[in-house]
Amino acid sequence: MNHKTNDPRGAWQRLAAAARQAPERQDTAAPYGFATRVAALALAQEARVVSVLERFALRAVGVAALLALFSVALNYEALAPVPAAAAPGIAAYDEPELAPTDDAVAIVLGLAD
């Protein structure tokens, strides 16, 4: 090996310059069947992503409906209209003369008996 004038800094540049002289491979056309395979795979992949989204969307609708039903069932008593006959105590409050007498305001104003 010749060590007379070593120049590691320029060595890379000389080597890169030599490598650039190498002929570039000319076969740049797609191999037979490559484009067909890739196109089919790409469209299938896209369809798969869409179907997964659809499935998730349907599940989300189902879960939302179930939650809605559950919350209605849980709060049924609060939401249901109360018939007057079925709950006389509640209906009684509608009559002013039957108001409870331990109301502080009523006592102060002398309304209580």
């Binding site: 090996m1 010749n2 060590h3 007379k4 004038t5 070593n6 120049d7 590691p8 320029g10 060595a11 890379w12 000389r14 080597l15 890169a16 310059a17 030599a18 490598a19 650039r20 002289q21 190498a22 002929p23």
Partner: peptide
């Protein structure tokens, strides 16, 4: 060896070997 010494340039016909080395 040629690249590391200033004395002679890398021969053009060694381009493939240079590519492998790179």
């Amino acid at each position: 060896d040629a690249a590391m010494t200033n004395e002679n340039d890398v021969a053009a016909n060694d381009a493939l070997a240079a590519t492998e080395l790179v």
